[in-house]
């Protein structure tokens, strides 16, 4: 049994089909990169996996997590899975955090929900988690509010929340797109290290091939709601089969930068 099995996932909004028959599978501890341009349906696929689709979305197909079907389940039945089974890291760390809640309370929330920890115990655990994601002065930072943190620190908080209840799968939706390159490098290192330590699986969504290549061993390329190519990351990058993937890789090579290459 695979950890996550997505079959024939289709998401519609009214007349428009934004995800059309997506098939993905992810074993325990595996890391899959999902790449696509804006409008390719990659984010909606990620949201569907976590049962976080916005109202108005019509979903068909199958999403099985640890063998049990998630689609068609009631909100009440899915909620316990979020955080405990599947942790989600959002793109925009500022808007994903509640501006009126202290950092510690937000990191501790999944623990209080899923592990039934007391307020005090959750606060202690939050400080430990803050230290684990490399936040400076954890004891002080758990008492801070989101606006008092930098963008990179906020994303570390986002990661701490996602891993708090030790989920088997972490879904990260463009987690570094809003960040600077140097900060992005730190966050990617942190994310891969944590996934390694915890033995969780990772579904990493991005528009940036170079970023995905750093964190994932397998790559799925999405276009217009479909997965057009899937395979080991290096194979896809070196020898793309689909014309669209070839175009994407060529574009990425043209504007990315490698120290080995001689600058034009």
């Amino acid at each position: 049994m695979r950890l996550l099995e997505v079959e024939d996932l289709t998401v519609r909004f009214g007349d428009s089909t934004v995800v059309a028959g997506v098939r993905l599978s992810l074993g325990a501890g595996e890391r899959l990169g999902l790449i696509g341009e804006s409008g390719s349906g990659k984010t909606l696929t990620a949201l569907a996996v976590a049962g976080l689709l916005p109202p108005g979305a019509a979903v068909t197909g199958s999403v099985r997590f640890e063998g049990s079907e998630l689609l068609g389940r009631r909100e009440r039945a899915i909620a316990p899975l979020r955080g405990a089974g599947i942790g989600f890291v959002f793109q925009e760390p500022l808007t994903a955090l509640n501006p009126l809640m202290r950092i510690g309370a937000q990191i501790g929330e999944p623990l209080r929900i899923h592990r039934g920890l007391s307020r005090r115990a959750a606060r202690g655990a939050a400080a430990e988690l803050a230290a684990r994601v490399g936040l400076p002065d954890p004891e002080r930072i758990v008492r801070a509010y989101p606006h008092q943190l930098s963008g990179g620190q906020r994303q570390r908080v986002g990661i701490a929340i996602a891993i708090a209840a030790r989920p088997a799968l972490i879904v990260a939706d463009e987690p570094t797109t809003a960040l600077d390159v140097t900060v992005q490098a730190e966050i990617l290192r942190l994310l891969t290290a944590l996934v390694e330590e915890e033995g969780s699986a990772l579904l990493f969504i991005s528009h940036d091939l170079a970023v995905v290549a750093q964190v994932s061993r397998r790559l799925a390329v999405m276009r217009a709601g479909r997965v057009v190519e899937e395979g080991p990351t290096l194979d896809v990058l070196r020898d793309p089969r689909e014309p669209y993937t070839r175009q994407l890789v060529a574009a990425a090579r043209a504007t990315s930068w490698n120290p080995q290459e001689t600058p034009s």
Partner: peptide, 26 residues
């Protein structure tokens, strides 16, 4: 010159920036 700065950065910050750039495996 771009060629010089990117291959042989003189300032520590430039070096840090260059190291952070995600690279496509060749």
């Amino acid at each position: 010159p771009t060629a010089r700065v990117l291959t042989d950065p003189a300032h520590p910050y430039t070096r840090r920036l260059l190291d952070a750039v995600p690279r496509l495996p060749v």
